[in-house]
Design a protein around this nucleic acid. Structure first.
Lengths: 141, 141
DNA sequence: CTGAATCCACCAAGATACTG
DNA sequence: CAGTATCTTGGTGGATTCAG
């Protein structure tokens, strides 16, 4: 062990585990999926209802998102062959389990988002100052 | 209460809350950010060490990701003006709070990812059959 | 070693129009 | 109402090169 600077080197939670979580995030963490799952969280809902609730989603994206969720067994699709046609979407049992991690995200947001935004502003200020300094230095050349 | 199909209609957790979580996800939920945070979770680490650990990340993306995290106060950057230069990155207290929701994601992945993949395969099979049927119908026209 | 800068390819996603 | 089909584009990220 001649580690120069790999101090503690806790072997727990390697890259492999990150990879797995990553795939999950890629599937359920994108913009529209989160919104759609949110819309479905209250119970069965029709196609155009989702469209109104999510607001801003294009027909294309809604269809694609729903198809993806259905494909992964997170959402069930029920067609009522009435006139006019009606299609209900609903979270499956598996889909409902998503609510837990999603709430974890939400909890973090409530607790720490403000601090994050504050840090961001501070950083922006410093950038301003740095830019000013740089400008004066450049000008005096 | 003349709800035709808006059954329970739980007013809890509106779109507003989803929006907030969404911003968080957009910031910390992207591919490289998750991996980098994972690499930083063990303690201070140098630029090129991250590059090796994350494996696959380009110089550009690593720099951009780190800059973003630093900007949001999630990661601290320490420069040692030695020769050659050395820069350490480390999660801030704020950054460490990310580990909680990230572990929630990980827990979900371990528990439900297999079921999700299974569902995906099943769906693919059905698609195959549907395609075959469609083909025979089309052919018989 | 740690970046910054430039160029470029690709694809996700929006808009639009059409169908069952 | 609930989709599908096609076209177009803007941004994301990779490769490469230069700099401190």
């Amino acid at each position: 062990m001649d580690d120069t600077n790999t101090a503690v080197r806790v072997p727990q939670h390697g890259q492999t585990e990150c990879r797995a979580s990553l795939e999950t995030l890629a599937r359920i963490g994108d913009k529209w999926t989160v919104m759609v799952v949110g819309a479905l969280a209250h119970g069965p809902i029709r196609y155009n209802q989702i469209r109104r609730v999510v607001e801003g989603i294009s027909q294309r994206m809604l269809t694609l998102t729903l198809k993806g969720l259905e494909q992964d067994g997170l959402v069930s699709r029920t067609v009522y062959p009435t006139k006019p046609p009606r299609v209900d979407y609903e979270l499956t049992d598996l889909g409902r389990t998503l609510i837990v991690p999603l709430q974890a995200i939400h909890a973090w947001t409530v607790a720490h988002q403000p601090a994050m935004l504050a840090a961001r502003e501070k950083f922006a200020e410093r950038e301003q100052q740095a830019a000013s300094l740089q400008a004066s230095v450049t000008a005096s050349k």
